[in-house]
Design a protein around this nucleic acid. Structure first.
Lengths: 120, 120
DNA sequence: ATGTCATATGAATTCATGTTCATATGTTCA
DNA sequence: TGAACATATGAACATGAATTCATATGACAT
Protein backbone atom coordinates (compact mmCIF):
# COMPACT_ATOMS: atom_id res chain seq x y z
CA UNK A 1 0.00 0.00 0.00
CA UNK A 2 1.59 3.26 -1.14
CA UNK A 3 1.44 6.68 0.32
CA UNK A 4 -1.35 8.53 -1.36
CA UNK A 5 -1.41 11.82 0.49
CA UNK A 6 0.77 13.63 -1.99
CA UNK A 7 -1.08 15.70 -4.52
CA UNK A 8 -0.39 15.07 -8.13
CA UNK A 9 1.01 18.46 -8.89
CA UNK A 10 2.54 17.65 -12.23
CA UNK A 11 0.73 18.66 -15.37
CA UNK A 12 3.03 16.58 -17.56
CA UNK A 13 3.09 13.25 -19.25
CA UNK A 14 5.99 11.10 -18.25
CA UNK A 15 8.18 10.95 -21.26
CA UNK A 16 11.01 8.69 -20.19
CA UNK A 17 9.67 6.64 -17.37
CA UNK A 18 12.73 4.45 -17.09
CA UNK A 19 14.96 7.47 -16.53
CA UNK A 20 12.60 8.87 -13.93
CA UNK A 21 12.52 5.58 -12.06
CA UNK A 22 16.26 5.06 -12.22
CA UNK A 23 16.94 8.54 -10.88
CA UNK A 24 14.27 8.23 -8.24
CA UNK A 25 15.97 5.14 -6.86
CA UNK A 26 19.29 6.93 -6.53
CA UNK A 27 18.00 10.17 -5.04
CA UNK A 28 18.98 10.80 -1.43
CA UNK A 29 16.18 11.24 1.10
CA UNK A 30 14.24 14.48 0.77
CA UNK A 31 15.41 15.55 4.18
CA UNK A 32 19.10 15.39 3.32
CA UNK A 33 18.60 17.52 0.25
CA UNK A 34 16.55 19.95 2.28
CA UNK A 35 19.32 20.24 4.87
CA UNK A 36 21.85 20.77 2.12
CA UNK A 37 19.78 23.60 0.69
CA UNK A 38 19.45 25.12 4.16
CA UNK A 39 23.21 25.10 4.54
CA UNK A 40 23.84 26.77 1.21
CA UNK A 41 21.15 29.29 1.99
CA UNK A 42 23.33 30.47 4.84
CA UNK A 43 26.18 31.01 2.41
CA UNK A 44 23.85 32.73 -0.02
CA UNK A 45 24.02 36.18 1.49
CA UNK A 46 26.86 38.59 0.95
CA UNK A 47 26.79 39.92 4.48
CA UNK A 48 27.25 36.45 5.90
CA UNK A 49 29.87 35.59 3.29
CA UNK A 50 31.82 38.68 4.27
CA UNK A 51 31.53 37.84 7.94
CA UNK A 52 32.75 34.30 7.34
CA UNK A 53 35.60 35.51 5.21
CA UNK A 54 36.64 38.02 7.85
CA UNK A 55 36.54 35.36 10.53
CA UNK A 56 38.67 33.10 8.39
CA UNK A 57 41.36 35.73 8.80
CA UNK A 58 40.96 36.42 12.45
CA UNK A 59 38.75 36.05 15.47
CA UNK A 60 36.75 39.25 15.84
CA UNK A 61 34.22 40.86 18.14
CA UNK A 62 30.80 41.99 16.97
CA UNK A 63 31.69 45.64 16.99
CA UNK A 64 34.81 45.17 14.91
CA UNK A 65 32.88 43.25 12.31
CA UNK A 66 30.28 45.99 12.17
CA UNK A 67 32.98 48.60 11.58
CA UNK A 68 34.75 46.43 9.02
CA UNK A 69 31.60 45.90 7.00
CA UNK A 70 30.17 49.34 7.68
CA UNK A 71 26.92 47.98 9.05
CA UNK A 72 25.01 48.38 12.27
CA UNK A 73 25.87 46.26 15.28
CA UNK A 74 22.34 44.96 15.30
CA UNK A 75 22.43 43.71 11.73
CA UNK A 76 25.70 41.91 12.38
CA UNK A 77 24.42 40.39 15.57
CA UNK A 78 21.37 39.01 13.81
CA UNK A 79 23.50 37.44 11.12
CA UNK A 80 25.94 35.99 13.62
CA UNK A 81 22.98 34.29 15.19
CA UNK A 82 22.14 32.65 11.88
CA UNK A 83 25.72 31.57 11.39
CA UNK A 84 25.87 30.13 14.87
CA UNK A 85 22.66 28.17 14.42
CA UNK A 86 24.20 26.70 11.29
CA UNK A 87 27.21 25.72 13.40
CA UNK A 88 29.52 27.74 11.22
CA UNK A 89 30.76 30.07 13.94
CA UNK A 90 31.30 29.86 17.66
CA UNK A 91 31.89 32.55 20.27
CA UNK A 92 33.60 33.19 23.56
CA UNK A 93 32.98 35.96 26.02
CA UNK A 94 35.71 38.13 27.46
CA UNK A 95 34.16 40.64 29.79
CA UNK A 96 31.77 42.79 27.86
CA UNK A 97 33.17 41.69 24.55
CA UNK A 98 32.08 38.61 22.62
CA UNK A 99 34.55 37.18 20.15
CA UNK A 100 33.42 35.14 17.19
CA UNK A 101 35.44 32.67 15.18
CA UNK A 102 34.89 29.94 12.63
CA UNK A 103 33.59 26.67 13.99
CA UNK A 104 34.20 24.58 10.92
CA UNK A 105 37.21 23.82 8.77
CA UNK A 106 35.03 23.14 5.76
CA UNK A 107 34.02 26.75 5.41
CA UNK A 108 37.22 27.56 3.56
CA UNK A 109 36.83 24.48 1.40
CA UNK A 110 33.33 25.50 0.45
CA UNK A 111 34.58 28.98 -0.44
CA UNK A 112 37.24 27.49 -2.65
CA UNK A 113 34.82 25.28 -4.52
CA UNK A 114 32.63 28.28 -5.12
CA UNK A 115 35.51 30.39 -6.36
CA UNK A 116 36.56 27.71 -8.82
CA UNK A 117 33.17 28.03 -10.46
CA UNK A 118 33.17 31.81 -10.42
CA UNK A 119 36.53 31.93 -12.18
CA UNK A 120 35.24 29.58 -14.82
CA UNK B 1 41.62 61.75 -1.39
CA UNK B 2 39.42 58.97 -0.11
CA UNK B 3 35.99 57.94 -1.16
CA UNK B 4 33.55 59.67 1.08
CA UNK B 5 30.22 58.72 -0.41
CA UNK B 6 29.67 55.78 1.87
CA UNK B 7 27.45 56.46 4.83
CA UNK B 8 28.81 55.75 8.23
CA UNK B 9 26.30 53.11 9.13
CA UNK B 10 28.06 51.70 12.13
CA UNK B 11 26.93 52.71 15.58
CA UNK B 12 29.99 51.14 17.23
CA UNK B 13 33.30 52.18 18.59
CA UNK B 14 36.23 50.42 17.01
CA UNK B 15 37.53 48.15 19.66
CA UNK B 16 40.49 46.49 18.03
CA UNK B 17 41.51 48.76 15.24
CA UNK B 18 44.61 46.77 14.34
CA UNK B 19 42.55 43.64 13.77
CA UNK B 20 40.03 45.53 11.65
CA UNK B 21 42.78 47.02 9.52
CA UNK B 22 44.63 43.75 9.10
CA UNK B 23 41.49 41.94 8.02
CA UNK B 24 40.44 44.77 5.75
CA UNK B 25 43.72 44.49 3.87
CA UNK B 26 43.20 40.81 3.24
CA UNK B 27 39.55 40.93 2.25
CA UNK B 28 38.82 40.13 -1.38
CA UNK B 29 37.06 42.79 -3.45
CA UNK B 30 33.42 43.31 -2.56
CA UNK B 31 32.38 42.16 -5.98
CA UNK B 32 33.97 38.74 -5.66
CA UNK B 33 32.25 38.10 -2.36
CA UNK B 34 28.99 39.26 -3.85
CA UNK B 35 29.38 36.85 -6.76
CA UNK B 36 30.18 34.05 -4.35
CA UNK B 37 27.03 34.75 -2.40
CA UNK B 38 25.03 34.82 -5.63
CA UNK B 39 26.35 31.39 -6.53
CA UNK B 40 25.50 29.87 -3.18
CA UNK B 41 22.09 31.48 -3.33
CA UNK B 42 21.39 29.29 -6.34
CA UNK B 43 22.24 26.24 -4.28
CA UNK B 44 20.15 27.53 -1.40
CA UNK B 45 16.81 26.19 -2.59
CA UNK B 46 15.73 22.60 -2.21
CA UNK B 47 13.98 22.49 -5.57
CA UNK B 48 17.15 23.52 -7.35
CA UNK B 49 19.26 21.19 -5.23
CA UNK B 50 17.00 18.31 -6.15
CA UNK B 51 17.15 19.24 -9.83
CA UNK B 52 20.93 19.39 -9.74
CA UNK B 53 21.13 16.11 -7.91
CA UNK B 54 18.84 14.45 -10.42
CA UNK B 55 20.89 15.80 -13.31
CA UNK B 56 24.04 14.49 -11.70
CA UNK B 57 22.52 11.04 -12.21
CA UNK B 58 21.23 11.52 -15.70
CA UNK B 59 20.36 13.96 -18.41
CA UNK B 60 16.63 14.64 -18.18
CA UNK B 61 13.91 16.58 -19.95
CA UNK B 62 11.78 19.22 -18.21
CA UNK B 63 8.74 17.01 -18.01
CA UNK B 64 10.59 14.11 -16.44
CA UNK B 65 12.03 16.37 -13.79
CA UNK B 66 8.58 17.72 -13.05
CA UNK B 67 7.24 14.20 -12.59
CA UNK B 68 10.23 13.14 -10.52
CA UNK B 69 9.87 16.07 -8.14
CA UNK B 70 6.09 16.16 -8.28
CA UNK B 71 5.97 19.78 -9.30
CA UNK B 72 4.47 21.71 -12.20
CA UNK B 73 6.33 21.98 -15.47
CA UNK B 74 6.25 25.75 -15.12
CA UNK B 75 7.92 25.79 -11.74
CA UNK B 76 10.67 23.49 -13.00
CA UNK B 77 11.16 25.54 -16.11
CA UNK B 78 11.58 28.72 -14.09
CA UNK B 79 14.18 27.09 -11.88
CA UNK B 80 16.05 25.62 -14.82
CA UNK B 81 16.32 29.13 -16.13
CA UNK B 82 17.98 30.23 -12.89
CA UNK B 83 20.36 27.28 -13.02
CA UNK B 84 21.26 28.02 -16.60
CA UNK B 85 21.94 31.67 -15.90
CA UNK B 86 24.29 30.51 -13.16
CA UNK B 87 26.00 28.31 -15.74
CA UNK B 88 25.28 25.21 -13.73
CA UNK B 89 23.20 23.43 -16.36
CA UNK B 90 23.07 23.36 -20.13
CA UNK B 91 20.43 22.06 -22.52
CA UNK B 92 19.99 20.55 -25.93
CA UNK B 93 16.87 20.31 -28.01
CA UNK B 94 15.65 17.09 -29.61
CA UNK B 95 12.45 17.81 -31.43
CA UNK B 96 9.85 19.02 -28.98
CA UNK B 97 11.87 17.84 -26.02
CA UNK B 98 14.58 19.83 -24.28
CA UNK B 99 17.14 17.85 -22.33
CA UNK B 100 19.03 19.40 -19.46
CA UNK B 101 22.32 18.26 -17.99
CA UNK B 102 24.99 19.57 -15.65
CA UNK B 103 27.35 22.11 -17.13
CA UNK B 104 29.92 22.05 -14.38
CA UNK B 105 32.00 19.37 -12.76
CA UNK B 106 32.27 21.35 -9.54
CA UNK B 107 28.62 20.89 -8.71
CA UNK B 108 29.28 17.48 -7.26
CA UNK B 109 32.29 18.77 -5.35
CA UNK B 110 30.21 21.53 -3.85
CA UNK B 111 27.58 18.99 -2.82
CA UNK B 112 30.22 16.88 -1.15
CA UNK B 113 31.64 19.77 0.83
CA UNK B 114 28.17 20.60 2.01
CA UNK B 115 27.43 17.04 3.03
CA UNK B 116 30.62 16.85 5.05
CA UNK B 117 29.32 19.71 7.15
CA UNK B 118 25.82 18.30 7.47
CA UNK B 119 27.16 14.98 8.75
CA UNK B 120 29.19 16.82 11.34
C1' DA C 1 23.36 50.92 43.09
C1' DT C 2 24.13 53.46 38.86
C1' DG C 3 25.95 54.65 34.55
C1' DT C 4 28.25 53.07 30.53
C1' DC C 5 29.53 50.04 27.08
C1' DA C 6 29.03 45.63 24.19
C1' DT C 7 25.83 42.60 22.66
C1' DA C 8 21.23 40.34 21.95
C1' DT C 9 16.51 40.34 20.64
C1' DG C 10 11.59 41.28 19.26
C1' DA C 11 8.63 43.80 16.20
C1' DA C 12 7.98 46.28 12.10
C1' DT C 13 9.20 47.25 7.52
C1' DT C 14 10.87 46.52 3.15
C1' DC C 15 12.58 43.81 -0.44
C1' DA C 16 13.64 39.46 -2.78
C1' DT C 17 12.05 35.20 -4.60
C1' DG C 18 9.40 30.72 -5.47
C1' DT C 19 5.12 29.15 -7.21
C1' DT C 20 0.94 29.55 -9.81
C1' DC C 21 -1.90 30.86 -13.63
C1' DA C 22 -2.55 32.15 -18.15
C1' DT C 23 -0.57 32.30 -22.31
C1' DA C 24 3.10 32.40 -25.86
C1' DT C 25 6.66 29.93 -28.59
C1' DG C 26 8.31 26.15 -31.09
C1' DT C 27 8.10 21.46 -32.97
C1' DT C 28 5.90 17.39 -34.93
C1' DC C 29 2.40 15.00 -37.30
C1' DA C 30 -1.87 14.43 -39.72
C1' DT D 1 -2.82 24.63 -42.09
C1' DG D 2 -4.25 23.13 -37.77
C1' DA D 3 -4.17 20.17 -33.72
C1' DA D 4 -1.42 18.33 -30.04
C1' DC D 5 2.41 18.34 -27.18
C1' DA D 6 6.80 20.16 -24.69
C1' DT D 7 8.66 24.10 -23.04
C1' DA D 8 9.18 29.11 -21.92
C1' DT D 9 7.68 33.33 -20.01
C1' DG D 10 5.27 37.42 -17.87
C1' DA D 11 2.34 38.97 -14.21
C1' DA D 12 0.31 38.27 -9.83
C1' DC D 13 0.54 36.47 -5.43
C1' DA D 14 2.40 34.86 -1.20
C1' DT D 15 6.01 33.78 1.69
C1' DG D 16 10.54 34.41 3.68
C1' DA D 17 14.28 37.00 5.07
C1' DA D 18 17.55 41.11 5.86
C1' DT D 19 17.76 45.45 8.00
C1' DT D 20 16.21 49.00 11.15
C1' DC D 21 14.51 50.72 15.45
C1' DA D 22 13.70 50.43 20.13
C1' DT D 23 14.82 48.13 24.00
C1' DA D 24 16.55 44.36 26.95
C1' DT D 25 20.45 41.78 28.96
C1' DG D 26 24.97 41.34 30.86
C1' DA D 27 29.42 42.95 32.44
C1' DC D 28 32.46 46.28 34.28
C1' DA D 29 33.83 50.53 36.77
C1' DT D 30 33.08 54.11 40.00
Amino acid sequence: MEKRDELDRCDCTVIHEHVVNAVKMKMPPEEDLYDLAELFKVFGDSTRIRILWALSESEMCVCDIAVLLNMTQSAISHQLRVLKQAKLVKNRRDGKVVFYSLDDDHVEHIFEEGLVHINE
